[in-house]
Design a protein around this nucleic acid. Structure first.
Lengths: 224, 224
DNA sequence: GCAAAAGTGTTAGGTATACACCCATGC
DNA sequence: GCATGGGTGTATACCTAACACTTTTGC
């Protein structure tokens, strides 16, 4: 079993922070929590996260914090970047390993804990610590990966219509795409496949339901 | 000034490790250092790196370790991934922030410190700690980025021939590319520009010298 | 003049883009 | 029957990939 290194080499606490994205009311949103740490940070928000304990890896701490703060069990997460600026938290030296997380709409039904809210990314306020920069890294990673992977699935229910899938692409890329060309490409790449089921209880022509052919993150030749 | 967090939250020492790539004798190589930490690691190598000190960011520690071990001042570096497995170093709990580094051939002239060597990527031995996995992350990042950025410049001298540039692409992608098509694309994208100078003292037709149009890492529409 | 690497265009096939109308359902 | 979103095909421009010979230099 590992021992502690000498005290003077253990100068920092370790934390994880996660930029959790979800589509809420048709808008790309991130989960924010209130921060109240006078005198440095009051009346300000930040991404959720918290310290890593001695018996945990970063991933274990990440899962613990996501579950405890938001009761979101099965979010997709991937590591983003580690922030180590000396004064990034003026109270203590804290090094933070940040993560990108994606939450499916099914998981949004649960109540959020006090002090948490989904905030549309277009209306993000100034955030505490270095979380403004963290957001930039996260949104840039998400924009990049949606174009050459099937990562969009983690923002959708397991079964979805092609219009819903297209809407996710348009939200993240921030531009409209042509419906016919989008469908041709998505299907030609075998990224999704029809389930055979149809939408129920809509007041217009019901759409065919699709699912992703792979539940794992997969790289594709090229996308959009 | 930041204070130390409570002792029980400071369970880990922080380290940086860097997978330094260079083209040595026409082969894609990485810099390895001997590891001798009985009883766990003897007669084994690993990437270079070392601890972060209390007054340093990860980037400062990275620069210090690169300079002291290899006297390579101006390597290009970017953060890769942070490894936090509890037993990754069986002696102490150490969390390591890994970096990808690229070294230009000009910088290779300097003597390496005792115990260091450039090892061809195709002949990599089994490495200490989790550095086998670290290598996979690094080579995968490098392969990805060479296709849509001008990152190849950091493995070349400031002035180079198009054949040398092509060789870097072939080494990293692990496949041959067509000379005419390669030149057309590179030039059409304005990635490089002729210096007006020619190669000197070669025993065949001298090639035109080129330089990159941007010294910064730049994303390009698409490449190869 | 010979060896060695530099340099240069064309064609065919495939991919990306732009674009407009009919269809199925609920009310 | 009307409002709503679902679903489909074609023509063009562009880009990609395949391919071989001439040129310049040192020896």
């Amino acid at each position: 079993m590992s021992q502690k290194a000498p005290d003077k080499l253990r100068f920092a606490a370790m934390a994880v922070d996660v930029v959790l994205f979800a589509v809420v009311d048709g808008k790309l949103s991130v989960l924010l929590g209130e921060v109240n740490r006078p005198p440095y940070y009051t009346n300000i928000e930040a991404f959720i996260g918290g310290l890593i304990f001695a018996n945990e890896t970063a991933e274990m701490a990440l899962e613990r914090h996501i579950r405890s703060k938001a009761e979101l069990k099965k979010a997709y997460t991937e590591q983003l970047y580690t922030f180590s600026e000396i004064e990034r938290d003026p109270r203590n030296r804290v090094i933070s390993i940040s993560y990108l997380g994606l939450v499916r709409p099914d998981a949004l039904k649960q109540e959020l804990c006090e002090g948490l809210r989904w905030c549309e990314v277009k209306k993000l306020p100034k955030l505490a610590y270095d979380h403004d920069e963290m957001f930039k890294v996260a949104i840039s990673r998400l924009k990049g990966k949606i174009s050459y992977t099937n990562i969009a699935q983690y923002l959708l229910p397991k079964e979805f219509t092609l219009s819903e899938l297209q809407a996710v692409y348009e939200l993240i890329l921030g531009k409209e795409v042509d419906k016919r060309n989008f469908r041709k490409k998505i299907i030609a790449l075998d990224m999704v496949v029809e389930t055979g089921e149809m939408q129920q209880g809509v007041k217009n022509r019901p759409a065919a339901l699709y699912r992703f052919t792979s539940e794992k993150l997969t790289e594709l030749p090229l996308l959009i």
